[in-house]
Each structure stands twice: as C-alpha cells, then as structure tokens.
C-alpha cells in the first residue's frame, strides 16, 4: 500500500523495517512454531553469551576475580541490590527470575546492535511475552500472598471517600496498561533506534550527504548503546516496582 511512496521523489530507497523480518535460517519454507529462524539464532547467541559470562567466566571461582568473573559479579551485585532496594528484602526469592529477564533483555539489546544482526527485543511478540510474564507473576503472587487484600492496591485509602471509586477505575486501567507500556516501551525503543539508523543509512546512497549520514549513524549508534542499557535497566526496575506492589500492596 505504502510501496510507491518509497520510490517517489529523490529515488532514495528506504526500507527501515526489513531488518526486522523473521526468516528461516536454513532453506525456505513457512515459519512453523519450531522452525529455526534468525530470531532463534540471536536468542541462542544471547544464551551463549550469558553462559560465557556467568558460567565460563566464573569457572575459576577465584577469590581474586578475573575480568570476566568480576563483570559477572558486578551484574549480580547490581541486580541483587536493585531487587533488594526497590522490591524489598522478601523479594529476594524472585532474584533469579529478575536476573533472567534482565540478562536476556540486556544481551538481546546489545547483540541486536551488532551490524547485520537481528534484534529479538525489537519484536512486540517477544517483549509482550516478557511483559505478560511479569504481569502474570505479579498478579498471581499478589493474590497468593495477600489474598483479597491485594485489591487494596486499587482502593486508595488515603484519598477522600468520594474520589476513591474514580481513583479505583484509574488505578485499574493503569494496572492493565502496565504490560502494554512495559512491552511497547522496550520493543518500540529498540525498533525506533534501529529504524532511524536504517533511515540514515538510506541517505548514505547519495554521495554528497554520505559523510553526514555516516556521522549521524555513528552518533545514533552511540545513543543506541546507551538506550540498550537503559531500556534493559528500566525493564528490570519496573519489574521490581511491580513486584513490590505485589508483595506490599499498601499505598
């Protein structure tokens, strides 16, 4: 539908979204649920990277850590402190879960920044599953831990009585919007960054402005390095905030 638009005017060809196409890695054919695709490959690579960092890096169990081991310990300590500070001491049993999400998002974001790679976290299917996992965990844990008191989350007892039903509706909506914003924030940020880089790369076809284009890609790449880290951090810390709501529903 929007096809002709790309070839109008200057003759520049932009297809910034082609990089997100999921295609089978071996041969051709329809994508079944078990097909090994480029998404599978880059997810597997993130697993490999995590294993390299956490398992191979710390295999020495050294008191004085090697560089890789100390990076692993740094991430461990950082996440542990975040869970402890934000979600509270009794959230520590969710630490492996939070660390899993954080590591997957962080490594997918950074691996997605490699040239010619595939950013798995730019897909709404992936981020929606992650966000729904957090949402379901939080809801189930909230009801299991607190029973019906968990509904107190929506009944703001500090507000005037007349306002409470309205606030309850707003709180309820904001509660159910959480997984949406949680997933779209991550997926949208990564997709936006990659698409912008592709758009600038499209301008590089014109010789005169190609230096500007290369400079802009470099700048955006630097920004995306920051965004990749910050989005992983934000995803994790929001998970911790939601967990805190589930464990201590009082306002």
């Amino acid at each position: 539908m929007a096809t002709e638009a790309h070839e109008e005017g200057t003759g520049l060809v932009f297809h910034p979204l082609d990089q997100f196409i999921v295609k089978p890695l071996f041969g051709e054919g329809p994508i079944h649920w078990y097909t090994i695709t480029n998404a599978t490959l880059w997810m597997a690579l993130s697993v490999v990277a995590i294993i390299a960092l956490f398992v191979l890096g710390s295999r020495g169990r050294a008191i004085v850590p090697t560089r890789t081991q100390s990076i692993g310990e740094l991430i461990y300590g950082f996440t542990y402190k975040m869970v402890e500070d934000v979600a509270g001491k009794d959230a520590i049993k969710f630490f492996p879960y939070v660390l899993t999400l954080f590591m997957f998002v962080l490594f997918s974001n950074y691996l997605g920044l490699l040239p010619m790679s595939f950013a798995t976290t730019s897909h709404i299917a992936v981020t929606a599953v992650l966000a729904m996992a957090v949402f379901l965990t939080v809801t189930i844990v909230g009801f299991v831990k607190n029973g019906t008191k968990f509904l107190g989350l929506f009944w703001v007892s500090s507000a005037p009585l007349a306002l409470r039903p309205i606030l309850a509706v707003i709180e309820l909506i904001s509660y159910f919007v959480r997984p949406v914003s949680h997933s779209i924030r991550l997926g949208g940020n990564i997709m936006a960054g990659h698409a912008v880089m592709k758009v600038f790369a499209g301008f590089a076809a014109v010789a005169v402005i190609s230096p500007v284009s290369v400079g802009a890609i470099s700048a955006i790449y630097g920004l995306e390095m920051l965004v990749a880290g910050v989005q992983a951090y934000v995803f994790t810390i929001l998970t911790c905030v939601y967990l805190k709501d589930a464990l201590h529903p009082g306002h």
Partner: peptide, 19 residues
C-alpha cells in the same frame, strides 16, 4: 514485520525456550 502474526508462535516458542 513486528505485526506479522505468522511468526508469533515461532518467536514465542523460542523465546520461552531461551528464557
């Protein structure tokens, strides 16, 4: 491509495996 629902089962399956 993000809204190409045919790839969703595949991505979700492999994502779950990965996680």
């Amino acid at each position: 491509p993000q809204l190409d629902f045919a790839t969703f089962p595949n991505q979700i399956f492999w994502l779950l495996v990965t996680l």
